[in-house]
Amino acid sequence: HAATELTPEQAAALKPYDRIVITGRFNAIGDAVSAVSRRADEEGAASFYVVDTSEFGNSGNWRVVADVYKA
């Protein structure tokens, strides 16, 4: 099962156990969220919340930071 994305309210009520950072070329924010979901799932997380997204220069590469939560 894939890790689910939390709302800001849900994330605020929970304590993350880790923070992950992924970088890559994403065509849309949805693609980045899917990549975070896969990584969170690999780490055994039940859910995640994207904290920050930023573009690296003009290369089209993105850096996505997310907190991950157990259950």
Rank of each mutant, 00 (worst) to 15 (best):
H1Q: 11
H1T: 10
H1Y: 12
A2D: 07
A2N: 12
A3R: 02
T4A: 05
T4V: 14
T4D: 06
T4G: 06
E5R: 13
E5N: 07
E5M: 13
L6T: 02
L6H: 03
L6N: 03
L6W: 01
L6I: 05
T7F: 08
T7I: 05
P8A: 15
P8G: 11
P8K: 15
P8M: 14
E9Y: 08
E9N: 09
E9W: 10
E9R: 07
E9P: 07
Q10Y: 04
Q10D: 06
Q10M: 07
Q10F: 05
Q10T: 04
A11F: 03
A11L: 02
A12P: 02
A12R: 11
A12M: 11
A13D: 10
A13K: 14
A13Q: 13
A13F: 13
A13E: 11
L14F: 09
K15L: 09
K15N: 08
K15F: 08
K15I: 14
P16K: 02
P16L: 01
P16F: 04
Y17C: 07
D18I: 10
D18M: 15
R19M: 05
R19L: 06
I20W: 10
I20C: 04
I20L: 07
V21S: 05
V21N: 02
V21E: 06
V21D: 04
V21I: 12
V21G: 01
I22C: 06
G24K: 01
R25P: 09
R25D: 06
R25S: 12
R25T: 10
N27E: 12
N27Y: 11
N27I: 09
A28W: 09
A28Q: 11
I29F: 11
I29E: 07
I29T: 04
G30H: 12
D31P: 03
D31E: 13
D31Q: 07
A32G: 03
A32H: 00
A32R: 03
A32I: 12
V33K: 13
V33E: 05
S34C: 13
S34V: 13
A35P: 01
A35G: 02
A35V: 06
V36Y: 02
V36H: 02
V36D: 01
S37M: 11
S37V: 09
R38D: 05
R38W: 06
R38S: 09
R39K: 12
A40D: 03
A40W: 03
A40H: 01
A40R: 02
A40T: 04
A40S: 02
D41R: 15
E42M: 11
E42T: 06
G44I: 04
A45P: 02
A45L: 05
A45M: 09
A45R: 00
A45N: 02
A46E: 12
A46G: 12
A46L: 08
A46Y: 12
S47I: 04
S47D: 03
F48N: 00
F48K: 02
F48P: 03
Y49W: 07
Y49V: 08
V50S: 01
V50Q: 03
V50C: 05
V50L: 11
V50F: 03
V50R: 01
V51N: 02
V51T: 06
V51E: 00
V51M: 02
V51R: 04
V51S: 02
D52L: 12
D52F: 13
D52M: 13
T53H: 11
T53L: 15
T53N: 06
E55K: 11
E55A: 09
E55L: 10
F56N: 09
F56W: 11
F56H: 08
G57L: 06
G60C: 07
N61T: 15
N61W: 15
W62M: 09
W62T: 04
V65S: 03
V65M: 04
V65N: 02
V65Q: 02
V65G: 03
V65H: 01
A66C: 06
A66D: 01
A66L: 06
A66K: 01
A66I: 12
D67C: 09
D67R: 01
D67Q: 05
D67N: 09
V68Q: 01
V68C: 05
V68M: 12
V68R: 00
V68E: 02
V68W: 04
V68P: 02
Y69V: 01
Y69M: 00
Y69G: 00
Y69W: 00
Y69A: 01
K70F: 11
A71Y: 12
A71W: 14
A71H: 11
A71I: 13
